[in-house]
């Protein structure tokens, strides 16, 4: 492998591994329990690496325990979005009526203003893990579907598929055994990309106040910091550190995706 790719892969995997460890065994990283309270608004110090927040929680502890939250929502919604995207993408690449309907569906969702719709839907659906995962997946499948559609169309017109048809293989047989395997690397790349999208959407939603406030994700932490006076106290540790974590996680996935991407 080329050196730069190797570097990217190692870097990405390291960061990802760090976060995975954080979410699986949080106790290794922090001695404090998640809801343990100390003095309010402490500055970063030896005993509290990132200080404490407005109710006295240790911020670093909150971030560590928030990792699993962020992961859980990010990964499950992007998996859901991936499945949806693959399904709709393949269906929309078919000829005839079905293809047109699903193509139209894709175009419809492309045009909808994403965040605005999410706000109204979130107010209607209420909080709760399932709701949020569904909401994020609801707009997350679009990009995947488009790329799957483009690639499927390309594959369908290639010569070996024609060959299959000449041999008389059924449509479903072709779809499952011949088309699908070729989509795998695209699917994998889209999954990594999708997690990024999910994490960003989730953080935007929690910044606007939609999210589980008792088990905060990183985005929710920023929301609370913003509304509980972190600015006036100059508690930039509270405001920015969760954002840095979001960035690092997104970067990790991106790097891995970059390293594994096949050169066209």
């Amino acid at each position: 492998m080329i050196k730069s790719r190797l570097v990217a892969l190692i870097l990405g995997c390291t960061i990802l591994a760090l976060f995975v460890f954080m979410s699986v065994c949080p106790k290794v990283f922090t001695p404090y329990a998640p809801k343990q309270t100390f003095e309010l608004w402490l500055k970063p110090s030896a005993s509290h690496i990132l200080g404490t927040n407005d109710v006295g929680y240790d911020i670093f502890t909150e971030i560590v325990y928030g990792t699993s939250q962020t992961f859980f929502i990010g990964i499950s919604s992007s998996l859901l979005a991936l499945i949806l995207g693959a399904l709709i993408g393949v269906l929309s690449a078919q000829n005839g009526f079905i293809g047109q309907i699903f193509s139209g569906l894709i175009n419809l969702f492309v045009m909808l203003p994403k965040l605005v719709c999410l706000i109204v839907l979130a107010a209607f659906a209420g909080n709760g893990y399932l709701n949020r995962i569904l909401l994020i997946a609801l707009f997350g499948w679009v990009e995947t579907a488009r790329e799957i559609r483009a690639k499927t169309i390309k594959i369908k017109s290639s010569s070996y598929i024609e060959n299959c048809k000449i041999h008389g293989f059924g449509k479903i047989h072709i779809a499952v055994f011949h088309i699908l395997p070729n989509l795998f690397d695209l699917l994998f790349a889209r999954f990594l990309n999708g997690v990024n999208g999910s994490v960003m959407t989730e953080s935007a939603l929690s910044f606007l106040g939609i999210g589980d406030l008792y088990n905060p994700t990183w985005g929710t932490m920023i929301n609370l910091a913003f509304r509980r006076g972190a600015f006036i106290r100059g508690a930039y540790n509270y405001l920015l550190m969760p954002a840095v974590c979001i960035s690092l996680l997104v970067l990790a996935f991106y790097l891995i995706g970059l390293a594994l991407k096949k050169e066209n």
Binding site: A204, F207, L240, S247, V250, L251, Y254
Partner: peptide
Amino acid sequence: NVIINTLPSFTVGMLLIILFCF
């Protein structure tokens, strides 16, 4: 650009506020 892309919109805004307003 890749690095900046990882920053959510409110983070960019907050950074700008912290840098240029305070």
